[in-house]
Write a protein that binds this DNA or RNA. Structure first.
Lengths: 252, 252
DNA sequence: TGATTTGCTTGATCCAGGTCAAATAAGGAT
DNA sequence: ATCCTTATTTGACCTGGATCAAGCAAATCA
């Protein structure tokens, strides 16, 4: 193993106390001592590569997973190879919370690019939450946050047209990247147009046309996976543009 | 207060240990002793009437609510009086889980018909979950279940056409009523066509036309709010009819 | 008991976005 | 490099369901 590899491996296997995601992740609000206890149950594997599975639908639920670096998509596969993309997960986001109830994964998760993932065995986590009230509270908050996020998506899919959906998607990415200390205006998409369309309930062609349109309107510049947002308030006004007067408003 | 009123009031204010919902609700999996501790923090108000609020969007989060009898809708109100219906809640279902994270309600909840509601102050519940591991586990399960339900709705709104959505809605109602010991084939809707359409991302007119069509096809009999399901497997085959081959399938 | 309001149904029309088809552009493999 | 596979873009066309517009039935009110 070369020196270079050792260094990069170490930066990935960083302990919770040194992790720059601590304010987003499970350790949020914990005292240093409790962070160490949590750290003690976290498993850090070697980096996964594009297409690798964190877990598959139907598998027994054992652990929660947190993205340390990279990105992950979760999706609900159906018989004939079709799928519904349920989410794209960035560093600090927890995956697998939906599996607790049935003790079995109801969706699949695979990484979109080379990613470092922390695994948290749930049985051991529950032992800790029992004796660390602030950790239990944080778990409740994280579960609740996931519900709130799903609620937002329901609103998006139930009431927004194609343009509003893509604008909301790009803004969501932008804001989440910013929270992680990255540029909110200049980033690379780790998912395909196909996956974006699937996630937003739109056809690939519609997504493609909207990217072109947004570029023509000066809202952003796109070059393949590279997105540069030129007019963030323009995007915001598309999303904020909430008709919702009576009831049905799939279209503008 | 008449004798009659006293009796009906008592049947509503039944303690958790005597509540027939115990297998669906928070006490699930608790020993009798712990059920009593939980019972000690539950507040049972007098019945609420159609239109009464459990809470409003923006209010400080203090309590979770459980439907004892009747039904409740939750919705996310928007500026101009429009709203997105997020769910219809039957006896045994918990409301307010999405408010934990922000410590503030992000949706509103009001009863659809005369209903009895149990209120569970969250701060006191957290004290109990800290010392009753099985209650903590049940809370995790309930939060996770809510996420799983939202996932199902995302799939419905993202990939299903109007016919599949209404069929899935009716089947969901039917199954939930059955779990509560009621007839899965014969029930009254407590919500309007307008609210159903809003929930399913459809126009009122579409919902109305679908009811008529389902009746013409012999799937059910509808008379205003009264629904009788005639061919449940017919409805199931509409929902189970999962194209989902490539990606986009808003339409059949 | 008639008047008013609100909810539901039905018909006619329109359009956002899906579907189909084909060209182009990247990657990836040999 | 060259071939092959897959992702993206663009154009043409079509349709499911929204919108608009009445008409009707139930519930509420005076």
């Amino acid at each position: 193993m070369t020196q270079h590899k050792v260094i990069s491996f170490e930066t990935i296997r960083v302990a919770c106390r040194n992790c720059n995601l601590a304010t987003l992740c499970l350790p949020m609000g914990l005292c240093p001592e409790d962070v160490e206890r949590l750290d003690g149950i976290v498993k850090r594997s070697r980096p996964l590569h594009r297409g690798d599975y964190l877990f598959r639908s139907g598998e027994r639920f054992r652990s929660l997973y947190v993205v340390k670096t990279g990105s992950v998509k979760t999706y609900s596969p159906s018989e004939e190879g079709g799928e519904q993309v349920l989410g794209f997960h960035l560093p600090g986001e927890i995956i697998g919370l939906d599996a607790i109830e049935k003790d079995c994964h109801i969706c699949s998760a695979r990484v979109l690019e080379t990613s470092a993932i922390c695994e948290i065995p749930f049985a051991r986590l529950e032992e800790l939450t029992c004796c660390i009230p602030s950790l239990q509270h944080q778990m409740f908050r994280l579960l609740s946050k996931e519900i709130g996020h799903d609620t937002d998506m329901l609103l998006l899919l139930g009431k927004r047209n194609a343009e509003e959906r893509l604008a909301a998607f790009l803004l969501s990415l932008s804001r989440r990247l910013q929270k992680r200390g990255l540029s909110p205006y200049d980033f690379y998409l780790s998912m395909s147009r196909h996956e974006i369309g699937n996630y937003l309930g739109l056809a690939v062609e519609t997504v493609s046309r909207l990217f072109t349109r947004f570029q023509d309107e000066g809202l952003l510049h796109v070059d393949r996976k590279h997105v540069m947002i030129r007019d963030i308030s323009g995007l915001e006004s598309i999303v904020g543009h909430q008709p919702l007067e009576g009831n049905q408003q799939r279209s503008s």
